[in-house]
């Protein structure tokens, strides 16, 4: 597969390591009342869609960017590639 890195252009997927569902960006708050339940779901529950899937890839053999790659799990078509830090900020994460 080829991942079109937002900073470096098209790169072979071999340069990356895969983590999984981009929902891992949304780490719950540790002091929430139901923190244990929230962290349980966050840590263990994943959607496994047949189709479009947002997932985290790490450019380990490259610039060490974490990317959010939107990939169709049926066709391997890559619909979108973003810097994970941009996505995280846009989705409300900060410090």
């Amino acid at each position: 597969m080829i991942i079109n890195h937002p900073l470096l252009g098209p790169r072979d997927a071999q340069e990356f390591t895969y983590l999984g569902d981009a929902s891992m960006i949304h780490r719950p708050h540790w002091q929430a009342e139901d923190a244990i339940d929230q962290f349980h779901d966050y840590t263990y529950l994943r959607d496994n869609p047949a189709g479009s899937h947002r997932e985290l890839w790490f450019h380990e053999q490259g610039d060490r960017s974490w990317l959010v790659v939107t990939r169709n799990t049926l066709t391997h078509e890559i619909e979108k590639v973003e810097l994970a830090s941009d996505v995280a900020k846009a989705e409300g994460r900060s410090r």
């Binding site: 983590l19 985290l56 380990e60 960017s65 974490w66 830090s85 995280a88 410090r95």
Partner: peptide
């Protein structure tokens, strides 16, 4: 060594991007 570095980059970029 490799896994910890990857984990720390994940925390920095995905969890606390403004640190």
């Amino acid at each position: 060594a490799v896994g910890v570095f990857r984990h720390m980059e994940f925390c920095k970029q995905c969890l606390w991007p403004d640190l």
